[in-house]
Design a protein around this nucleic acid. Sequence first.
RNA 1: GGGCGGAUAGUUCAACGGUAGAACGCUUGCCUUACACGCAAGAAGUUAGAGGUUCGAAUCCUCUUUCGCCCA
Length: 879
Amino acid sequence: MELSKEYDPKLVEEKIYKAWEENGYFNSEINPKRDKFVIVMPPPNVTGRLHIGHALNFTLQDIFVRFNRLFGLETLFLPGIDHAGIATQSVVEKELLSRGIKKDELGREKFLEEVWSWKEKYGNIIIEQSKKLGVSADWRRLRFTLDDKYVDAVLEAFVKYYEEGLLYRSERIINWCPHCHTAISDIEVEYFEEKSKLYYLKYPLEDGGDYIVVATTRPETMLGDTAVAVNPDDERYKKYVGKFVILPLVNRRIPIIADPSCDPNFGTGAVKVTPAHSVEDFEIGKRHNLEIITVINDVAKMVNVPECYLGLTTLEAREKIIEDLSKDGLVERIEDYTHSVGHCQRCGTVIEPLVSKQWFLSMETLAKEAKEAVKSGKVKIIPDKWVKVYFNWLDNIRDWCVSRQLWWGHRIPAYYCDDCGEVVVSKEKPEQCPKCGSKNIHQDGDVLDTWFSSALWPFATLGWPEKTPELGYYYPTSLLITGYDILFFWVARMVWSGMHFMKEEPFKVVMLHGLVRDEKGRKMSKSLKNIVDPLNLIEEYGADALRFTLASLSTLGGQDINLSKERLKASRNFINKIWNASRFVLMNLEDFNPNEIKEDELELEIEDKWFLSRLNKHIKTEVEYLKDYDVGEAARKLYEFVWGEFCDWYIELSKLRLYSDNVSKKKTAQFLLWKSLISILKMLHPYIPFVTEEIYSYIPNVDKPLIKAPFPQVEEAYINDEVERKADFIFQVIKGIRSIKAELGLPLITELNASYFSLSEDEKSLIEQEKDKVMKITKVKDLSFVEEKPDRALRSVILGTTVYVELPFEFDLEKEKEKFIKKLESVDKELKAINSRLLNPSYLEKASKDVIEKDKRLALELEKTKLVLLNHIEDLGGK
RNA sequence: GGGCGGAUAGUUCAACGGUAGAACGCUUGCCUUACACGCAAGAAGUUAGAGGUUCGAAUCCUCUUUCGCCCA
């Protein structure tokens, strides 16, 4: 077998993925005998291309999925696609327009045909792209929010809510996007601070002479004013309350009313009230029974207004109205003003609050259910800082406007009788009106908010409302992973839907991760040109490198991730390192059969015991981190362990035996390398599945594939702190000798004599025992115990031991002395700190025993080192 | 206006109550029969600032500065 020196993901990833998929390794079957682990994938938009946010989201999910698969759980990763109402409709609309076809001329049915054919053509691109990342989802179960069965679930939910009185149709003020030409919900409005003007307008009092001055940012809405409001406690205006003003330009007589929502500090303290075009004013209007006069239509043009303003855009109307009012001297002044303006989240257009008849989902009961699920611990939110945000949102929630004036989506199952106006809500179109018997019935033309359907995702994908075996086995799901940006849009709504329809939580844990930003922490955006395409990154560094980068940058706190090329390079190098370490092991396994080895009869060297202890500790911590959902720390720890301990020390030390003639020692080393590598590959596999599976395929005497292999068991008996300390001492001795050579600029291969002296019997016997190893690895010719300091030797102090490296030439004694003085200073500083602690009665009383023990041991070691250092400084001529 | 998060080595990030770590970059020496996407050795930090709690604080509390998010 010849493996290349450099790992090339391009030669591996596609092949491996194909093999996994073809062999059905991602598939899950109902298996009541086994514990299950279920993740439903947040469905990406059907219009979508894989972006870096998906890459992070999918990577995290796939890590948990793969771990649980290795742990032997029946693991379902259920993928899906969202129809994404507005987004998809506008993409197809634009596409048609580019061919000169207008949506409205085409008609609803033909248009929907076009969208479907577009969906068939492009809708699965993101699925294919996510496969490049290694996503191990059960693709057979792919769901789409407009699948027949899913549509049925959505209609079922709508009808049930309606029957329970939670859904109602009402004329209320809503957020209207004049560009998307639809109502949107409160959370789809984004507010930005904008520089604007505050206009002070004079409204003449009915009884003549006097004016009342109102301040407004939107003078064009004055044509729809039906009152002027002041705060009831505002002394300035008390005398006016109950009187009337004559609305300029339209000469309407409107009352001056007192309402507590008026802020006396805003403007003049008096505000104009336009119930049809302001959310706050609508509320005031309701309280005071004001007339609602609509003066702006659904494309943001003026209606129901005097001829000269009719059909103007709101901005044109604003200018003309100010001009006209000025002529009459009714504009008191205009100030610069900054305020926040609502924009459509999708298209950025300024939102027009309009009064319109829409379907609303009543939030009171559902919000309560959503809160209860988290309060009771049925749903756990990680990190828990989001719990407060979640409650806060639910506490202040308003009824959810769920109807959208679109064609693409779930058409609202409400039918209206053209003759008597009766409303029937049902999955099927009624034959005739149940009230008057008329057959002139038409269906509501609107569709539902996309989020209304995705709120049902965890159970509708499993067959609800049918009581399918899937629903029985896989629900509730185990874990939901998504970005914190859709906590309200999606997570909260899924929670209440699950609690309401299933009476059980949709998922036991929801893990919210951060957003991916550029290396400077800026949001990725087209205008900044800092968008990175994950597919390019995969092309350049490999999917494993991208996955490992994203995983290792994740934090338990769900912080945003700043992605940089440097980090990707580091991950790519790490993967190459693993590749080469494995290649090394495999190269040395050619004449080896693990079946010939009895593990409990092996003669273990100190480095074996050390490494087995380290390895088992890491298997343990790996599992612990994952139980705590700390993927990032788990990945980072693994990196340090594999590179810093396995590669740098264990493999290096194993060479001494692999290249020796001692057959039994060689076989021991081979066996342990074989065994360790298998464990390491298993631990790494969830993060970097491709390279690990590829390497695993070359490993002799293991059951393949890795994706289905059992996770390594912790072998407690190997965990041994004492051994670790001893080995560490030897490593320090090795480093000491290397350091001396390096400081002199000598290549490591320069052969020199070394010797040592030790105050400690333990240290002395350890060195005696491991002498050959140390000599070989540091390339020194000798390492004998000496009572007397050799001539011309540089020294290195490790605990109570001094290692001398003898030199064939003179060197700078002063420099050597300074090195020790510097070291003494730091030892002294630390020792003083520890000693003062150990002399402090309240420390001894209050600190934990472990900490005190550790301090005491450290103090002893430092004392020893200090003594040795003092000797050397004295010997080199004193301070 | 209310809330949340960040500020730690030149850079990107860890550590979340017991001696501040890694990666990249930098310096020096090495193509040592796994790897130059590498090896070895090094330099580099009053943990934004000021108070407080504690035997002990980067870590907990308060305030300030600053950057960023969310909600109204």
